[in-house]
Nucleic acid binder design. Structure first.
Length: 339
DNA sequence: AAAACGGGGCG
DNA sequence: CGCCCAGTTTT
């Protein structure tokens, strides 16, 4: 039974494969550039294809190969990454590029790739399969969902990793793992979607127990999610002679290593009463209300630099601070702050 | 085993 | 406005 689903999924992929900039089509007789596969895979960690596509092109134009990226300063990588989130990925990208350039190229096995910074189980398996033709079993959330539905797995994925791996294995048996990995990703993205799956278009419908159940969307069951705490803080707008005072956040922790407005710590509890300007930003694990206040000078012993306001885009501010700048500019144009 | 870690797009 | 996404690292 799994062999039929396997073949149907692969055949469907050959007919309908999405044309993606980092992808070599199913009809090509060569493997894609490992550098491009790696870069796209890292970008696609927790980030959608639509968001990644233009950012991938910009990275590739600036750094056409791993040696070029390895030669760039970390600061440039972070600036180019700004807005993509999960900034540890950018730091690991830089460290990985240097390690790969140092050793003269990408390792060609899953085990070798797994040793590199920012490359975990999924990404190692994906690069090994897609770029090097290794017979790895590639399991990401798409594959987990497809497999859970094929078998009507009624336990949360989180508590059934072993079982998922066992059930995924036959899908990769005796086929090109790279093709199957990409086939399953397309299937998960376009047909076997988390919500409103298009079972009528699915090549594996006849072998799908979730479809047979009549409620395919119920698989796999989602664990209860926990609530998000509220935090608040203040960022300081310190402007002098057309320049804005910026700081660099600590390497470790939230928005690590990124450019930022200086400000207070972010605390739990009740926010400031009636701030003139504030922005709201929702992180994975808490929601932040950030007030923006004008200030004449940086606090003593605050390390930072003066960024020309007409070159603020070059600072590489993450989205939270880009929002703050936008909110301040808008208030300044219309409000009484500097009127 | 669980928490930390961003942001954008969609219904 | 809540949910989800081509996960990895740290605790």
């Amino acid at each position: 039974m799994p062999a039929r689903a396997r073949d149907a999924i692969l055949a469907h992929y050959h007919r309908t494969a999405r044309d993606l900039p980092w992808r070599v089509g199913p009809r090509a007789n060569h493997r894609p550039d490992p550098y491009r596969v790696w870069l796209s895979e890292v970008m696609l960690q927790q980030t959608t294809v639509a968001t990644v596509t233009p950012r991938f092109a910009a990275f590739l134009e600036r750094w056409p190969d791993v040696e070029a990226m390895a030669a760039a300063p970390l600061e440039d990588i972070l600036q180019q990454w700004a807005g993509l989130g999960y900034y540890a990925r950018a730091r690991n990208l830089h460290a990985c590029a240097r390690a790969v350039a140092e050793r003269g190229g990408f390792p060609e096995t899953e085990a070798g790739l797994r040793e590199l910074p920012g490359i975990g189980a999924y990404t190692a398996a994906a690069i090994a399969a897609i770029a090097f033709g290794e017979d790895s079993v590639v399991i990401d959330t798409n594959v987990e969902r497809v497999v859970a539905r094929l078998h009507a797995l009624d336990r949360p994925v989180k508590s059934a990793k072993g079982e998922i791996a066992r059930l995924a294995d036959p899908l990769f048996d005796s086929v090109d793992s790279g093709q199957m990995a990409q086939a399953l990703m397309d299937l998960g993205a376009t047909i076997c979607r988390p919500k409103n799956p298009k079972c009528s278009e699915c090549p594996a419908q006849a072998d799908c127990k979730a479809f047979a159940s009549g409620t395919p969307e119920a698989f796999p069951p989602k664990p209860p999610r926990k609530q998000r705490p509220e935090r608040h803080g203040t960022a300081w707008w310190i402007e002098r002679e057309g320049k804005l005072f910026l700081v660099r956040r600590p390497e470790k922790g939230l928005l690590g290593g990124m450019a930022a407005l200086p400000g207070t710590d972010w605390n739990d509890g009740t926010p400031d009463e009636n701030p003139a300007i504030s922005v709201r930003h929702v992180f994975t694990h808490f929601a932040l209300t950030l007030s923006i206040e004008e200030r004449d000078a940086p606090p003593d012993q605050t390390e930072g630099w003066w960024q020309p306001l007409d070159r603020l885009d070059e600072a590489g501010l993450p989205t939270l601070y880009a929002k703050a700048v936008k909110a301040f500019a808008k208030a300044e144009r219309s409000g009484p702050l500097t009127a």
